[in-house]
Design a protein around this nucleic acid. Structure first.
Lengths: 208, 208
DNA sequence: TTTAATTTTGACCAATTAGTTAAATCAAAA
DNA sequence: TTTTGATTTAACTAATTGGTCAAAATTAAA
């Protein structure tokens, strides 16, 4: 998929990547400051530019890493050969769990892809994300032909699934503020959803 | 709700607000440039500061306007007295239509509230957004008591509805890139969803 | 041990950017 | 017409920020 081997990064590079990821996730590309990254990595700013030509290349690397991380587990599940209902159930549960542990990822991706399409396009093209989705798409079509899944443009079904899984995490800050609840209360709420959503989807999408 | 009367803005202020909104929606707070705003408003940068103390106050005004716009129509519909199914149907359809015409709004709000909670908090508190949601929440509870709506924590129902309505718009750039389709193809797709989603929700949430 | 290459640093630079100031212009009132 | 206050501008400032460079420190090789 990508030719980034985390193994052949030295200690300095790892510290840079950790600090850079924290900074970019929190502030986004335009809000992030190279000086902050250097400080939090415990080093001189010039050393950042020694390892990464400029802010953009450092950002690209972070973006790559986030994208890989977000889709590798997804790919693993989609590749396994089980019936559609089980796969849907496992996919949704695993992914919701994953997103709850990486709450910053969805909004980061949504945002940077919106604001920086050029930077991001090439990274996206290098990945095999779309192939993975193709496989799921085809299995969905097959399940529809088998009469297991309701008749509805499969693209709509996929967007429905993704919406229900991703949005509550991407919008967690907005929701906690609007509903005036604490982060931990909302965390509990999301935990509940891990059981509710697969059930909801299976009821709504599968013919019984 | 807010005491901003668009009527008592002079021509200059209107030009500023239009240019500022375009800039902030496209680039976000940290990516936006006062110079760009001045240029696109066809004026000197100092004039910006004559009307708005600083970038932050200008941004707040834009944020306010977006928030008001996004929730005023919502409020109108929620306030009308019709049965729950009709209200849900109308709410979802109107709002999806609205969002398709204002695609930049959802991601803008998600993002700025995440990155700038302080700036945004006071604007949020001034609004009566939460009251509006309370009314909908109560009507939902009532419909559950009447046996019209399935038993499920109403908060989960509301988040489910909002996810399905908002996410496909907020993520439109990501989805068009991942699915490798054009903006206009996705626009068609969203138009289809305006009929699909209310139907889907009513089937999933209402007892028949 | 000496030499060469790599890694790290402090000090600096150039460009950008938000914000200021004082003067000029304009409109309305006296 | 003159004066007064509001509006607009050009030129400027101070601070921030991404990026550079030459030298120092460290590590690896000879």
């Amino acid at each position: 998929m990508f030719n980034t081997n985390k193994e052949d990064l030295n200690e300095t590079q790892i510290k840079i990547m950790e600090a850079a990821m924290a900074e970019f996730l929190e502030k986004g590309f335009s809000g992030a400051r190279m000086q902050n990254i250097a400080d939090n990595a415990g080093m001189n700013k010039a050393l950042l530019h020694y390892y990464y030509r400029n802010k953009e290349s450092l950002f690209k690397q972070v973006f790559r890493d986030v994208l890989i991380d977000m889709f590798s587990m997804l790919t693993d599940i989609i590749e396994t050969e089980i019936d559609f209902e089980s796969k849907l159930n496992k996919l949704v549960k695993s992914y919701m769990n994953y997103l709850i542990e990486h709450r910053q990822f969805p909004l980061f991706l949504l945002n940077e892809i919106y604001r920086n399409p050029e930077i991001v396009d090439q990274v996206l093209r290098e990945s095999d994300v779309s192939e993975t989705w193709d496989k799921f798409y085809n299995e969905l079509c097959q399940s529809q032909k088998n009469g297991d899944v309701i008749e509805l443009n499969p693209a709509h079904i996929i967007v429905t699934i993704v919406s229900l899984v991703v949005f509550p995490v991407a919008a967690s800050n907005v929701i906690t503020r609007f509903a005036d609840i604490s982060q931990s209360e909302y965390y509990e709420f999301l935990q509940e959803r891990i059981d509710i959503i697969p059930e909801f989807l299976i009821k709504a999408l599968l013919k019984k």
